[in-house]
Amino acid sequence: MTDKPYEPLRPKKGPIGELLAPVAGFGVTFSAMFKPTVTEEYPRKKTPPQQRYHGRHQLNRYADGLEKCIGCELCAWACPADAIYVEGGDNADLPDGAHVSPGERYGRVYQINYLRCIFCGLCIEACPTRALTMTNDYELAGPTRAGMIYEKQDLLAPLADGMLAAPHPMVEGTTDTEYYRGEVTAPTAAQVEWVREHRPDDPTLDAAAAVVAGKAPAPTQRKHELRPSQDRAEATRAAATRSNVDGRTAPRDGAGAALTPGGRA
């Protein structure tokens, strides 16, 4: 501290600025009228959030359609809000050597309660197989409490084109280690054959067969897409139907559902 008198940090105004200082606020409001607005017009124009945004969870799959979740419950233990409930099951209990996930166990029951979830991402860090990740989906609201508990089929990543719906056997000659290393890149002919035998009506069969025959590229995981923007009429209609279903904002049917679970067919 010196003997210098107090000097404000902001620059001093000129004589005209001093004169107009009492009414300077009017200038602020007037000039603000010509600035672009900062409002996001949500249902009309859905703005994508930042890539890092913590949105709804997703249970991922391997390229052949098997689930990554092994039912280890580490996510549930990591959850500080106690929002996750997991029950594991043995793949050995499934008939005819079918697998839901590679390896010994799979997640039989998987629930996330979005009324409790605080979107901290600790479950993602806890997951050993990178089965659980977070999407950018922020449209999470619903009229009922029960509806806000998302089940496994709501959380599962949709089957990309060429993936074969689980359950089916693992790729022949592999263990979960190969899966984990990313060496499985597409369904194999044996898996397609198995599914054709057990579930001949499976809708994913044709695409998977095309991949096996080399007519289509190997499946890649689908990214989250924003649901289409809505005008007023659509928003009203959507709200009406939504509240009739079960209280989840995620559309349960048809085209708009980029991330609708695929294992529910």
Binding site: T29, F30, A32, M33, K35, T37, V38, T39, E41, R232
Partner: peptide
């Protein structure tokens, strides 16, 4: 609304 950098009624 414009003075507060909002769009105001537009629905």
């Amino acid at each position: 609304a414009r003075m507060q950098v909002r769009p105001g009624p537009n629905w």
